[in-house]
Design a protein around this nucleic acid. Structure first.
Length: 857
RNA sequence: GCCGAAGUGGCGGAAUUUGGUAGACGCGCUGGAUUCAGGAUCCAGUGGGUGAAAGCUCGUGGGGGUUCAAAUCCCCCCUUCGGCACCA
């Protein structure tokens, strides 16, 4: 054993040993209980960053710990290899996306290996590999067959200069991200707008982004809205509550009714307007209706009316506006009267119809009934245009009067001015109104979701091709299994102009129809990369399987993922898509799984100087530099110790020094002990019975077992920061300990061995090295977890606090099984306590065994 | 605006699961040892006030309450962070 701790040397050594012994390569073993721990796989951007290091260190601690508990641990890693940065590199630097990606993977893989993570590299997955996306294409064709994948047009962001579609993340408004233009994959990221008309711009060329209607492919995630919502209930025990809340909000279920309002005069065959409302109980309070400009009925309804010209201008103006301009904070409600009326089917009142900017295009029917007395938005609109306000819900014990209302009354209450329903509580009224419209046939109960279908089309090259061909004679056809995969052609030039790169490759586009043999064209859109990440965790269970997405038998053994770990930023999209896709695959008979991730741990960000590490801020700390300076174990210890896993972690150069110091101290104590005992040659037979009776050695022995208990419990609860602190505490106890006799020497050795074993999941290289130096042949990788001795822990003397009137006045050591009466006696005979109670009347004495005595005077 | 989480030394954080010594552990700082010197290492100290010291006293965002006892439980308020925000 060397005197100096040399992390570079020992880390290289143990990484080699583990890899030679193939210790992390696992197979199904039905005699052993499995444990599947997974970290979100990285995008191969080129370098591992501190966020990855934190994520993967947490996963590695869990994987190693579970393994020592005897679980058959599956701990895989791979690459989310498709995506835009590769294509941008091609456009900017002329590197082929494949070359760029695979070189990055090679680099990052080396980095991960230097960190000593316990991955089964045999299961490594790269999503850009045709052997991977082949199965995704096959699943697509099955989804196409049953209507879960379909094509339609939708409004997208279009950059006229780059001639390409932009994802929402690529559209910027004063540094913020644009919300979804209207429908599709979601991504309604919120941004702050100051109400000024700021243009949405392309992130690369700063051109003003246009809204364009474009054909694209969608997954029918809305069909699974209810199931995804149900699943949230079942995941309650294993997922953070806030993630589930975010998903529930995203799905946004609301229950209500659709009701037809007959038009006063039929317009081009249209007799009524259908609305969706969650408040059918307020239907008697409708004083106007509003239509979204996008609804085709808007233009038809004004035809020939005196208001036509003004209305058409309004429609065209609003239609050109992006979402920001329409719904940004502080944007005024605007509308225009159509000149048309409909009739309230309940009150038979004549209701004017408006076209308004605040009616959403893609929610409900695009037409709303407006009840200004009981809806704030309608209230504001009514005030603006001088429309009547009719109160139909009265709060109990109060009186709402339309003339002095400052805002709408949106709560429940008693229905008034509502014909035969007057006097009915609103909750009951809702049901009665729905029943009525259903029996009369002019409406029905209806559930609406905010969730939109998932737009998966990307007019991009570096993604999985959508396996569809268009034949003039046979129509739109899925590519049959024996023609899969539809491989990405490799010989291609990147200009960044002229739309989809694939569309320009004639060899790719032009094909023959497998059905009729005639000329056909291939679909040139590729799939959203969220599709790959929606099933990679399934593929890990059988990455070499050649007959389908995953091998049923192997999948059944390993799945579901027991512990998933990743950043909170994926709380909605990735996690929701993966849940959805898993359910689809289940329904297609490809796997037998309802929920993919049993438990979810969301780790916080790595922060430096109060901000997330990022290139633009220039506050990046490169993990490689730190590893080169201190070694992987130090980085790992710091990542775990500096902060609880769920919270953000503040990077600190001094902090990492502290972690390095700690490992150096561990090394030195082991070394010193080894020297004093001639390289650990003296192997006293350790006798805990004798050691515990020996007052010289008892204290440290108790500390050893208390700390084993503490660290074990902290590992179970993922409280790694306090777990590491407990090992440090034990080391401090060792450093204070004087060893002379045999019992003391034996206990000291026991303490040092314990530190090494407890350290193993956190800092595995140094632990293995010291364990070997201590004279053991077996590696810690396969050694069962150390257990604490209940009796030793239980025999520890307890400090009993003596209080007078709730204030601590003294403290004494006591045997843990001291009786309450004895504790009381001890308290009353304590000198310091005596001075506080002498001459005073004792009112009450509280005794808490093992803790305290409180005397109230 | 609505929903949720959190506020503890100079800093990161512990104790909140179970009401029972607040500040574990680390960083930083102060003093000392070692050294030609620096670094590294080791030892001691380190919430505020007061005191020579023993000690006393205040102290977990603010205010109130429950209790023998509150960082922990309850109510009101403030601040910060996160999510949602014309979803009818």
């Amino acid at each position: 054993m060397k005197e100096a701790y040399n992390p570079q040397e020992i880390e290289r050594k143990w990484q080699y040993v583990w890899s030679e012994k193939r210790v992390y390569e696992v197979t199904e073993d039905h005699n052993e209980e499995k444990y599947y721990v997974l970290e979100m796989f990285p995008y191969p951007s080129g370098r591992i960053h501190m966020g990855h290091v934190r994520n993967y260190t947490i996963g590695d601690v869990i994987a190693r710990y579970k393994r020592t508990l005897g679980f058959n641990v599956l701990h895989p890693i791979g690459w989310d290899a498709f995506g835009l940065p590769a294509e941008n590199a091609a456009i900017e630097r002329g590197v082929h996306p494949a070359k760029w990606t695979y070189e990055n993977i090679a680099q990052m893989k080396a980095q991960l290996k230097r960190l000593g993570f316990s991955y089964d590299w045999n299961r490594e997955i790269t999503t850009s590999d045709p052997n991977y996306y082949k199965w995704e294409q096959m699943a697509f064709t099955r989804m196409f067959d049953c209507g879960l994948a379909y094509k339609r047009s939708s409004v997208v962001n279009w950059c006229p200069s780059c001639e390409t579609v932009l994802a929402n993340e690529q559209v910027v408004v004063s540094g913020a991200v644009l919300p979804e233009p209207q429908s599709g994959s979601g991504g309604n990221k919120q941004f702050a707008s100051d109400g000024n008309k700021e243009a949405a711009r392309c992130w690369r060329c700063q051109s003003e982004v246009e809204l364009r209607e474009l054909e694209g492919w969608f997954f029918k995630i809305t069909d699974y809205a209810e199931q995804l919502l149900d699943g949230c209930e079942r995941l309650k025990d294993g997922w953070p509550e806030r993630v589930l809340t975010m998903q529930k909000n995203w799905i946004g279920k609301s229950t209500g009714a659709e009701i037809d309002f007959p038009l006063e005069e039929t317009i081009e065959g249209v007799r009524s307007l259908r609305i969706f409302t969650t408040r059918p109980d307020t239907v008697f309070g409708v004083t106007f209706m509003c239509i979204t400009p996008e609804n085709p009925i808007s233009e038809r309804i004004v035809k020939g009316k005196p208001q036509e010209k003004e209305a058409v201008q309004f429609i065209q103006r609003i239609k050109r506006q992006s979402n920001i301009e329409r719904v940004g904070e502080g944007v005024k409600k605007e509308g225009v009267f159509t000149g048309a009326y409909c009739v309230n089917p309940f009150s038979e009142e004549r209701i004017p119809i408006y076209i308004a900017n605040f009616v959403l295009i893609s929610y409900g029917t695009g037409v709303i009934m407006c009840v200004p007395a009981h809806d704030q938005r309608d209230f504001e609109f009514a005030k603006e245009y001088g429309l009547p306000i009719k109160v139909v819900i009265q709060p109990e014990g109060d009186d709402v009067n339309p003339d002095d209302m400052k805002c709408a009354y949106e709560d429940v209450g008693i229905m008034v001015n509502s014909g035969e329903y007057s006097g009915t509580p609103s909750e009951i009224g809702k049901q009665k109104i729905i029943e009525y419209v259903e029996t009369k046939g002019f409406g029905r109960r209806q559930i609406n979701y905010r969730l939109r279908d998932w737009g998966i089309s990307r007019q991009r090259y570096w993604g999985a091709p959508i396996p569809i061909i268009y034949c003039d004679r046979c129509g739109t056809l899925a590519v049959p299994d024996n023609y899969l995969p539809v491989e990405l052609p490799m010989d291609i030039e990147f200009t960044g102009k002229g739309g989809s790169p694939l569309a320009k490759i004639e060899k790719f586009v032009n094909t023959k129809c497998h059905k009729c043999g005639g000329d056909a064209r291939r679909e040139t859109d590729t799939m959203d990369t969220f599709v790959e990440s929606s099933w990679y965790f399934l593929r890990y269970t059988s990455p070499d399987f050649e007959n389908g997405m995953l091998d049923g038998a192997r999948g059944k053994y390993w799945l579901p993922v027991d512990q998933y770990i990743g950043g909170i930023e994926h709380a909605i999209l990735h996690l929701l898509y993966a849940r959805f896709y898993t359910k689809v695959l289940r329904d297609l008979g490809m796997c037998n799984l309802d929920e993919p991730f049993l438990n979810l741990l969301t780790q916080g960000m790595v922060i430096k100087d109060g901000a997330k590490m990022s290139k633009s801020l220039g506050n990046i700390v490169d993990p490689d530099d730190i590893i080169a300076k201190y070694g992987a174990d130090t980085v790992r210890i710091f990542m775990l110790f500096a902060s609880p896993v769920e919270r953000d972690l503040d990077w600190s150069d001094e902090g990492i020094e502290g972690s390095y110091r700690f490992l150096n101290r561990v090394w030195r104590f082991a070394y010193d002990f080894g020297i004093r005992n001639s390289e650990f040659g003296i192997r006293e037979s350790f006798n805990p019975q004798s050691a515990i009776r020996n007052p010289q050695s008892k204290g440290l022995l108790i500390k050893v077992h208390k700390m084993i208990k503490k660290v074990t419990e902290d590992l179970e609860r993922f409280q790694f920061n306090t777990g590491v602190a407990a090992i440090m505490e034990l080391l401090n106890a060792v450093s204070r300990f004087q060893s002379n006799g045999n019992d003391e020497k034996a206990v000291l050795r026991e303490a040092i061995e314990t530190i090494v074993r407890l350290l193993y999941p956190f800092a595995p290289h140094i632990a293995e090295e010291l364990w070997e130096a201590l004279g053991y042949k077996e590696t810690l990788v396969d050694k069962p977890w150390i257990e604490w001795d209940r009796e030793i822990v239980g025999s520890a003397a307890v400090i009993v606090v003596l209080q007078v009137n709730g204030k601590v006045r003294s403290q004494v050591f006591m045997d843990p099984d001291t009786t309450e009466e004895e504790m009381k006696q001890a308290a009353f005979s304590d000198e310091r306590v005596k001075s506080y109670i002498s001459g005073k009347e004792i009112k009450k004495v509280i005794v808490v065994p093992k803790r305290l005595v409180n005397i109230v005077v």
